[in-house]
Every structure is written in structure tokens, then in C-alpha cells.
Amino acid sequence: MNIFRLTGDLSHLAAIIILLLKIWKTRSCAGISGKSQILFALVFTSRYLDLLTSFISLYNTTMKVIYIGCAYATVYLIYAKFKATYDGNHDTFRVEFLVVPVGGLAFLVNHDFSPLEILWTFSIYLESVAILPQLFMISKTGEAETITTHYLFFLGLYRALYLINWIWRFYFEGFFDMIAIVAGVVQTILYCDFFYLYVTKGEGRSQLSIPT
């Protein structure tokens, strides 16, 4: 474990908690893409099945359980508890255009053709594009609540920190996982446009307005 991976995990945890609290406190999921949250729940489910097969560390297990629990709690709040505030008209990204190609790619490009490994690979590829419905929804509505932009900032930051972690691990441990790195680069690039707006317009404005 290195400082970049630890701050990356904490940034990821912060994003997940910020979103969950935002929906819970405001009792509204306006501006939140339920589709992206379903994809994240799918990412964690397919990636953390190894909870049942291998024990890495207490930290690893605890974080996985928290991620999965928060992901499903968020999906529940969006589609059940605060369903009335879900903005389905703007959450229209065709997620099948993400899941199907990613599923196919996971079968073609992976480290090992075993069920757990293919599911892990699927989750890595899916995570890199899972935020697209959310970014698409914001571009359609043309705005995002400030708290939502903080959620996206920490979510984007986490994988950027992981990229530094992989550089660190390659240099000091000779470890590198090409699949995770390539997907992580794609994932972080998708946030660049948002990062630019977050930094340049985040200050002083109540709403982040993305030119549609």
C-alpha cells in the first residue's frame, strides 16, 4: 500500500459517501443518473466476488463491503425510496451500448480465462465508462448541483491517484497490470472535460453549467 493508493481509496469512499448523503439529506436524486449508479453496483458486484474466495486484508475486505453496501443503498434510494425525484427524462443514455461491448472485450482481452478473472476484467472495463450516463445527463440538463460536482471531482480524482499508484508500484515493485492501467487512463480522460469546468467554473457559481 502506498500513499497514492490510500488517498485514492479515500477519495473514492468520499465520493460514494457524498452522493449517498446528498440523496439522503435532500431526499432527492434530482440530477443524478440512476443508470450510472446501477453500473457502479454492477462493477463492485462483479469485481468483489473474491470476497467469497480469498482474504487479502481487513482493510481490503472492509472497503469492499462498504463500497458494495453504499452502491446498492444508492440505487435503492434512487429507484425506490426517492423514485418520485428521479429525473428519468434526462437519464436516457443507452447503457446496453456500454455493457455489451465491455462484456465482449472482457472475454477477448483478459489475464486468465477463468470466471472470476473475466468478471474482474469486465468490472475494470465497465468502471472506465460507467460515469458516461451521468456526464451525458449533466450535458443534457446543462447544469449540476454543486454537491454533485464535488461527487464527480472525488470520483475522477480517485482513479487519477491510482494511475500515480501504478507508476509508483512499477518503479518500486516492478508490478503493473496493463488492463487496469489502460482502463484507468480511459476513465480519467473521460473526466478531463469535467475537471476543467470544475476548476474554472466551480468557484463562485452556484450551478456548474456545461455548454450543451
Partner: peptide, 10 residues
């Protein structure tokens, strides 16, 4: 092979 498919990262 084994070590590559034990993923220690979240």
C-alpha cells in the same frame, strides 16, 4: 500465473 490473478487493489 496465480499471482497475476490475485488482485490486491480495490
Amino acid at each position: 500465473k496465480a499471482d497475476e490473478t490475485t488482485h490486491d487493489e480495490l
